[in-house]
Design a protein around this nucleic acid. Structure first.
Lengths: 218, 218
DNA sequence: CCTCGAATGTAGCTTTTGTTACAGAAAGGG
DNA sequence: CCCTTTCTGTAACAAAAGCTACATTCGAGG
């Protein structure tokens, strides 16, 4: 049995809330690449990631994917929350990126917790808010910037402190909603400018300032 | 003094909540095209539209706009709610589309109402949820469909029951995040197919099924 | 009724992005 | 060590969307 009470919103629960939670919690182990939710699915509860990482993405009719966001440990799948409160169908796909542990709280239980626990209310609103901002930013990026700029942004934002981004070009392409060849072409340009170097399965940022400069100009 | 209590979430308030609300409510009249909020602005409270309509849009560095969504009477500006709870800066622009009355509830008051009034909690979560869905759908559209399909969708979704869409091509272009010329070209194609007719300031849908067909195919 | 401004129609050209089709290079398992 | 799989690099071509530059048309206000 996993201990959800270590996670921030749950350590401020009342005794009653804790009891409720312990009774209604289900844990689920997901191997890498396992499908978790699919579009149009009816949502049965709230999902919290305990370990690992989930990827939420949209899927075009032609099979092109685009990552919307990731859910890291301690976070919750907001779409599920969403569907829960609005009683709507799930609007995207979710897949485990790595070996992932998910805690499942039934919809009924979650609504009850929401009604009586300020910590849960707060967490819910905060999670929704954060997602709205992320989606907003993404949407703005998509129609304001060219792919090269979005790629530069991806490299800057997701690279480690050491300037390493461990993703294949295929993954980057999915993230940006484009194809591998285009990413290769653009990366080629960045390599030529001396801003990055490419390795198998990773890309090294050599000149972050240069990348940042690309984003700045219209 | 406007009467906010006629609007759905507010008619279920407790007596204490009502009193609080009456004390802290400020009303504001906005002429058409008046700027309401700008990007990066610090948010001072929650905005409810009582009359008229607000337009929320993003603005690219080069001046291209794209409408994110509208706020109709009875609805609230979720970005503002958002910024309120996360203490972030406002992420987009807002403008009055028509003569509009806005009710402003200070952040402090709103948080207090949120803490004690279930109706307000419910409304907040629901509003955020709805927005998440809209943004999701928009984002998916943007990278799954071509402009012609998105235009067809716009015509289908926003036309009146009689098949009239009263927008200039310029406005459609802004809505889709593109330019007038492109809209004119695409509309030209639709006219040639006999699906629509164009008039000054409006477009008439003549064959909704045809438009719908365009959206269906990849 | 006339004029002016706003809205629309059109054409050609450029840039960006997507597609197709391969070839070479790196990792990993047997 | 070899073979297979996955990842990467490239080039040419096609399609979509954006940009520039005008001509035209509609309608409201004088």
């Amino acid at each position: 049995m996993l201990n959800l009470e270590n996670f921030s919103p749950f350590c401020h629960l009342s005794e009653a809330g804790r009891t409720l939670l312990r009774r209604g919690l289900v844990s689920k182990e997901c191997p890498p690449a396992a499908p978790i939710l699919h579009k149009g699915q009816r949502i049965s509860g709230a999902y919290f990631v305990v370990r690992g990482r989930l990827r939420v993405y949209s899927l075009a009719p032609d099979g092109t994917e685009a990552t919307l966001y990731f859910i890291d440990p301690g976070e919750t799948c907001v779409f599920a929350l969403n569907s829960l409160f609005n009683d709507l169908l799930y609007p995207a796909w979710v897949q485990a990126e790595a070996e992932t542990t998910v805690a499942l709280i039934s919809g009924l239980l979650f609504r009850e917790l929401f009604a009586r626990e300020p910590a849960i209310q707060d967490m819910t609103v905060r999670a929704l808010s954060t997602l709205v901002f992320r989606l907003m930013a993404e949407l703005e990026q998509v129609h304001s910037y060219k792919l090269e700029q979005r790629l530069a942004n991806l490299l800057l934002v997701r690279a480690s402190a050491a300037g390493e981004l461990c993703m294949t070009q295929q993954q980057m392409a999915q993230h940006l909603g484009t194809t591998r060849e285009v990413v290769a072409r653009l990366l080629g340009g960045l390599v030529a400018s001396g801003y990055v170097e490419t390795r198998r399965g990773k890309t090294l940022v050599r000149n972050a300032a240069g990348l940042a400069g690309l984003i700045g100009k219209a």
